[in-house]
Amino acid sequence: MSILPFLAAGWILLAGIYGMVTSRNLVHAVGCLAVAQSSTYVLLLGVGFRRGGTAPVFSDIPTRTPVVDPVVQALVLTDIVVGTTVTALLLSLVIQIRKRTGTVDPEDLTELRG
């Protein structure tokens, strides 16, 4: 099964979205968004894997050693940073929602406020 790692990424994505759809707590929903997003890390690292390759850092290995793809690893780094900042921003929105409405259950947030 050479597509098993990719299937794992797809499963993580759908599991995260399922959590967001059924969530009764906004903090939980933000956590599920982070889970859904982490599927991209698995997918990118799976795409960049080279059988027999090592980490793309040449400080202690000869420069002709086969290594895994550094481009996707750099993309994952960007992904993690952006994911963390988005999580922080969403959590501060949740704090504001809790302060203004007294609830963090998305099903109780039905009306628009001016």
């Binding site: 797809g10 793809d69 481009v71």
Partner: peptide
């Protein structure tokens, strides 16, 4: 799943961008 089956196989030796990077 349809898209994953079209990807280069897992662990492939052929990484054009990686080699150039």
């Amino acid at each position: 799943v349809a898209a994953f089956t079209q990807l280069p196989p897992f662990g492939t030796k052929d990484h054009p961008y990686g080699t150039r990077a």
